[in-house]
Design a binder for these strands. Sequence first.
DNA 1: CGAGCGATTGATCGCCATCAAAGTGGGTGG
DNA 2: CCACCCACTTTGATGGCGATCAATCGCTCG
Lengths: 244, 244
Amino acid sequence: MQVRNLAAADPHLEGDHPCFGCPVRELAVCNTLAQGELAAFRTSGSCRHLGAGDPLCWQGDEATHVYTVTRGALRLSKLLVDGRRQVTGFAFPGDFLGVTMEDEHPFTAEAVCEVELCQFSRRRFDAFVDSHPHMERRLYSAAASELAAARDQLVLLGRKTATERLASFLLEMARRSDQSPGEPLRVMLPMPRNDIADYLGLRIETISRELGVLKTSGLVRMIGVHEIWILDRRGLEQRSAGGQ
Amino acid sequence: MQVRNLAAADPHLEGDHPCFGCPVRELAVCNTLAQGELAAFRTSGSCRHLGAGDPLCWQGDEATHVYTVTRGALRLSKLLVDGRRQVTGFAFPGDFLGVTMEDEHPFTAEAVCEVELCQFSRRRFDAFVDSHPHMERRLYSAAASELAAARDQLVLLGRKTATERLASFLLEMARRSDQSPGEPLRVMLPMPRNDIADYLGLRIETISRELGVLKTSGLVRMIGVHEIWILDRRGLEQRSAGGQ
DNA sequence: CGAGCGATTGATCGCCATCAAAGTGGGTGG
DNA sequence: CCACCCACTTTGATGGCGATCAATCGCTCG
C-alpha cells in the first residue's frame, strides 16, 4: 500500500485529464476505470481540503458523500456516551471512505494533518457504480480489505499486551508508509500520541513508556515525535506476537 | 436478523425446488435471486453437516469453498503463535462465510453445536457472481455489515469494561436470536464460556463472575448454562455503555 | 520571554488475570 | 439404575499490567 506518483508516467492519461497527476491513481477505487470512464466519474466529484483537526464527518450524521484520500491522514473514531473514544482506523492516501450500506456515517472522521480528498455525492457515486460492474467489484475488494484489517485489530485489542500492540502498530504504519528499500524503515506518525493510544486501546502514558522501552532496547530510534526509524525489524516483529 | 421459516409459505418457490423449505431463504446471500437463478445456483452447491467441535476450515488453509449457514452456530477465531486465541465472531443461520479477497481462510471456523451449511466451490461461486450483478451487490452488503459489526467489536475490546462487554454481548445475542415478542428476551448461548471469553477479550472466570453479578442484580436469569433470559432489557442496555 | 499544549516520567491504584479448588452435569459402562 | 468420570463451570485468594493521578519537560507560537 505504498503511495507513488505514477500518474505522471501513466500512458493512459493525457495531460489535460482532471486526474492527470493524481498521486493515488494506482491505489484508489477508481483505478479500475479506463480513461473515458474516469473522466465521466471525475466530473461528478470535487476536491476538498482540510486543515489539521478539521472534521470531515461526524458519526451518526447523514452520509451524503464518499471520499478518496489523496494526501495527508485522517483518524476514524467512535465514541461511547461517556466520552471514551476508540479510533477504529486511520485513512491514508489511496484509501476510500464510504464502505457502508447505512445512511449514517459509522464513525467520525477528522484530519490529523493537512488533508486533501476527492469527494463525490453518494447518490451520484451509487448511480455510477450501478452502471460500472467492475467498480462494484473494486468496492467489494475494498470492503474485504477493511474487514481483514479490522479482524487483525480485534486480535490486537483482545489478546495482545501493550508492547505487542505498539510493535504491531509500528510495523503496520511502516507497511503503509512510503518506503525507500532497505533499513532503517522510516515510519511517519502524523497523528498525536492520544490517537495512537485510542487506536491501540491504551492510554497515552503507556504509549510513551512502551516507546521508551523499544528505544532503550535499540529496536527503534525517534526523530522528533512524528518520525520513527525501525532499526531492527526482525526484533520488532518478534515483539509483535506475530499475527498470521 | 431473525430466523423464520418462511419458505414454506414462499409463493415463489415450488415444492420440488431444492431450496424449498430452506430456513434461511430470506436471510442468505441468495435471497436476491429469482427462482430460475436460484435453481441454477443451488445445483452448484451441496449440503454439509458438522457435529459439535468439528472444524469447517483452518486459518491459513486454501479457501476452496464458501458457505451459508442454515442451522446451528460456528465460532470464527484467529490464533497467535503462542496459542492465545481471539474469537472474531460467531456465524448463525443466514450468515455467509466467504467474504474475502484472499486465497486463504482468514480465520478458523468450528462448529459449536450441530451445524448444517450450504456449500459452494469458490470457483463456481465467483463465476456465478460475475454473471449476476445483484449478487455482487448483495455480497458487498454482507461485507459492509460484517465491517460495521467488527468496528463495534473494536469499541468493545478497546474501551469497554468487563461488565459492559458482557451486557453488550447478551444484547447482541438477543438481537441475533429467534425472538417471540415481549419480555423476557430468551437468549440462547450455544457456545461454551471459553468461546465467550475469547470473543470478549476476557478470561472464562471473569465471564462467570460478571454473569453472576447480572444475575444477582436481577437483570438476567439463567436457565442452564446455554440459555439466559433478559429480565430487564433497559437495565442491561444501561450497563452496556450504549453503542453510538 | 512566557503561555500553552502535547509528551514524558514518576508514584500509586484497581480491574481483571492468574492460580487454586470445589461444584455441576451429561455420558458411559458396570 | 447407579457410580464413575471427565469436561465445563463456578467460586475463592492473590498478583500484575496498565490505568490513574501528578509533576516536569519541551516544543511552538505569540
